[in-house]
Write a protein that binds this DNA or RNA. Structure first.
Length: 236
DNA sequence: TCATTAAATTGTT
DNA sequence: AACAATTTAATGA
């Protein structure tokens, strides 16, 4: 059972292709990149593995190279509330890393994933030295705020079709997850875990959405045809 | 490269 | 929750 940051004790240099998935990497100057590359570590996470848990001290800033993670929190009733999924290109934990606090949510792998970690110290060094990095983090924080507000709204939705649609729209957020194209590799089972519905109901919702041309369902994933329709529930 | 088989995913009840 | 149908991935000739 892998535990949190200990996952990153095994260090491996990232390949060109893996670095290309990191959205802030190209914003750095030469020496900044060198520093970041030296510190970047990657690890594989199996489905169900936790990358971090609520209450643990922050040691890394995380980013998804490949796979899919789930960001959630346990409320007082013991119910798990999922905020959002994190697809390739997504980075998280900057809020708590900034303040050097403890994690406020759980991050769990939904499927076999490759996750990169940047040590908090390097994270702060980049904040102190790189304008481009600052800009990225700022934009990221702002977008994340919007997401959390949206997540609360989604959670109050009673209509499952709308829940699925909004969750998909959130996954396709272009600012937070620039590494993502128009196709999303996610099984209906994974999506079900993400939105907190049964796979059957998700399947039904996807059928509805595709019937209205908002998405196209494919084997092992789906394609977003009309992001606006997903966001604004134009399929009702 | 092709055919066969196993595994994963989907659609439906 | 269970089932059959479909798609992909893996294997070996």
């Amino acid at each position: 059972m892998p535990q949190d940051a200990t996952l990153f004790q095994r260090r491996r240099p990232l390949t060109e292709a893996e670095l290309a998935v990191i959205p802030w990497y190209k914003l750095l100057s030469e020496d900044e990149r060198e520093r970041a590359t030296d510190d970047l570590k990657v690890t594989d996470a199996n489905p169900g593995d936790y990358l971090c848990r609520t209450g643990r001290p922050v040691t890394y800033w995380f980013g998804v190279i490949d796979g899919l993670l789930k960001m959630s929190t346990d409320n007082a009733d013991g119910q798990t509330m999922t905020f959002t999924g994190v697809p390739p290109g997504g980075w998280f934990g900057e809020g708590t890393a900034l303040k050097r606090e403890v994690y406020r949510y759980n991050i769990q792998a939904l499927r076999k994933s490759m996750v990169a970690g940047l040590h908090v110290d390097t994270f702060h060094w980049l904040l102190d030295h790189s304008i481009g990095f600052n800009r990225f983090v700022m934009k990221q924080l702002n977008e994340r705020l919007g997401q959390f507000i949206a997540a609360r709204e989604i959670d109050r939705m009673t209509n499952p079709d709308i829940r699925v649609a909004r969750s998909l729209a959130a996954l396709f957020n272009p600012v937070l997850y620039p590494g993502l194209g128009a196709v999303l590799r996610i099984t209906q089972q994974e999506l079900a875990y993400l939105v907190g519905l049964s796979r059957q109901r998700v399947n039904q919702a996807l059928t509805t959405l595709s019937a209205h041309g908002a998405i196209a369902v494919e084997y092992g994933g789906l394609r977003v045809m009309d992001l606006q329709a997903l966001r604004n529930s134009l399929f009702l």
